[in-house]
């Protein structure tokens, strides 16, 4: 059965604390921290962007997959911070992992769920027999306007998944999507920072789509929350995934393992799939995982996965999510604006 044959992540090492951002804007750090349930976020270095993050994650995924990159028939990179508006990130990745030239490649954009959209597309190509292996990546260096509440959460990071039929470390049992046109968050062409509908991003957007997709998937499989060992959700802040998980009937020990937003922020296209990687870092063969993403605009993709035996031998072949989370350097707001190119020379 089709599944994940290799996964890899990358999180930049710079961190800025919530209190530090709050200090600059005259907000109360403690209450912001409590409200968003985010202590610090990961910030890309000055020489990093969605493409470099994607490449690093892809190389880690390849180490675990133990396949030749030339066997990859499709590369799709999901991001809302592609370095170029016109010119694919996917070709950069393809060349950097030496998968060129016999493959198809494209960039995906669907706010924070472009990574899971890429996974679905790649899965379909593998299922149809069009490609032997497909590489799907979600990678972002998310933008938040200075002073916007998004600045507390918009972070850098990414995850890559190689999907194929041979010896998967987790099989993908089923996937289900729920999509509507719900304008909760957007960025217009040529604009550096996104805009959003404030509290409108909550109930009609995140909660409606995430719970509908998760429920839809479980219903289609005739399963309930008790059938899963882990549940991973898109995590724009620390609160949303916990609230939606509880509402869906999941227990703490099912959803806490996949939450990392409190320590790295919202990595947008990387967010839910970094959560999935964190779970794969600890899961045992036979365990079942529910993954549900969310992308503003809006839609959710849900996946049901079963961890396979080969996870044990493949896991040590690349760094774990925790390795990246713990390798960190704190920066202040001044360095932050330099790294994020909010000042120009």
């Amino acid at each position: 059965m089709e599944g994940i044959v290799g996964y890899g992540v990358y999180i930049p090492r710079y961190r800025i604390k919530t209190e530090e951002i709050a200090r600059v804007w005259g907000n109360d750090g403690e209450s912001v921290k409590k409200g968003l349930m985010i202590g610090e976020k990961a910030v890309a270095g000055i020489d990093e962007d969605a493409a470099t993050i994607a490449v690093e994650a892809a190389r880690n995924a390849l180490s675990r997959a133990e396949i030749s990159a030339k066997e990859i028939g499709a590369i799709y990179v999901g991001s809302e911070s592609h370095p170029y508006t016109v010119k694919p990130t996917a070709t950069i990745v393809a060349e950097a992992v030496d998968a060129t030239p016999e493959l198809t490649a494209a960039d995906f954009e669907f706010a924070c769920k472009a990574g899971t959209a890429a996974m679905q597309a790649v899965l379909a190509l593998v299922k149809s027999g069009m490609v032997k292996y497909g590489l799907a990546i979600g990678s972002d260096t998310a933008q938040g306007a200075p002073g916007d509440p998004l600045e507390y959460t918009a972070a850098g990071g990414g995850a890559a998944y190689i999907i194929g039929k041979n010896n998967p470390l987790a099989t993908i049992e089923a996937t289900y999507s729920f999509t509507t046109d719900t304008p909760d968050f957007w960025r217009r062409e040529g604009q550096p920072y996104p805009r959003h509908g404030g509290r409108f991003t909550g109930l009609p957007a995140y909660f409606k789509h995430v719970s509908s997709a998760a429920k839809g998937l479980m219903d289609s499989l005739g399963k309930g929350p008790e059938d899963f060992d882990f549940a991973v959700f898109h995590q724009p802040n620390g609160k949303f995934p916990r609230v939606v998980a509880k509402k869906l009937g999941f227990e703490k020990e099912q959803f806490e393992a996949g939450i990392l937003v409190d320590r790295i922020g919202n990595t947008y296209s990387g967010s839910s799939i970094l959560g999935l990687a964190k779970v794969l870092d600890i899961a045992k063969p036979g365990q079942k995982i529910l993954l549900t993403s969310f992308g503003s605009g809006a839609g959710s993709d849900a996946f049901s996965l079963v961890v396979e035996d080969s996870i044990e031998e493949k896991r040590p072949l690349a760094p774990l999510v925790e390795d990246y989370i713990s390798d960190k350097v704190y920066i202040d707001y001044a360095i932050y604006v330099k790294l994020r190119k909010k000042i120009r020379v």
């Binding site: 020489d47 962007d49 690093e56």
Partner: peptide
Amino acid sequence: IGMPVERVFRKI
């Protein structure tokens, strides 16, 4: 001098 290093993909 002598530090072990590994390659990484970045913007030049």
